[in-house]
């Protein structure tokens, strides 16, 4: 699959395993796959995750402070899980290719 699909499809697909994922894990994976290694690329992928959450497809379940600077020092890190609605939308968009 990889980088030939829209970024939000890929993000949903990564969440379709039903596990919780931290935003920095998803962001760095997408940065790698889509070759978006700049700070701008990072922020834009993170905004995609925020949009998916605000659309009710992901749910913010846990937060912690980024003390070591693994993502952005002294900012909040968020952990998300996919919602039922997200599973439906994600399957519409992704499953037929799997």
């Amino acid at each position: 699959m990889g980088k030939n699909r829209p970024i939000k499809f890929r993000i949903l697909e990564l969440f379709l395993d039903g596990e919780g994922h931290w935003n920095y894990e998803i962001v760095s994976k997408i940065q790698e796959e889509y070759d978006m290694k700049s700070a701008y690329g990072r922020d834009s992928i993170n905004f995609d995750i925020i949009e998916l959450a605000s659309g009710g497809m992901l749910k913010d379940v846990e937060q912690k402070v980024d003390e070591k600077g693994i993502y952005k020092k002294d900012f909040l890190l968020h952990k998300y899980v996919i919602t039922d609605f997200g599973k439906v939308r994600g399957s519409d968009a992704c499953i037929r290719y799997v």
Binding site: A53, S54, F85
Partner: peptide, 10 residues
Amino acid sequence: TSALETLRGE
């Protein structure tokens, strides 16, 4: 007012 994080129901 409380639903700023998630807009749609789950």
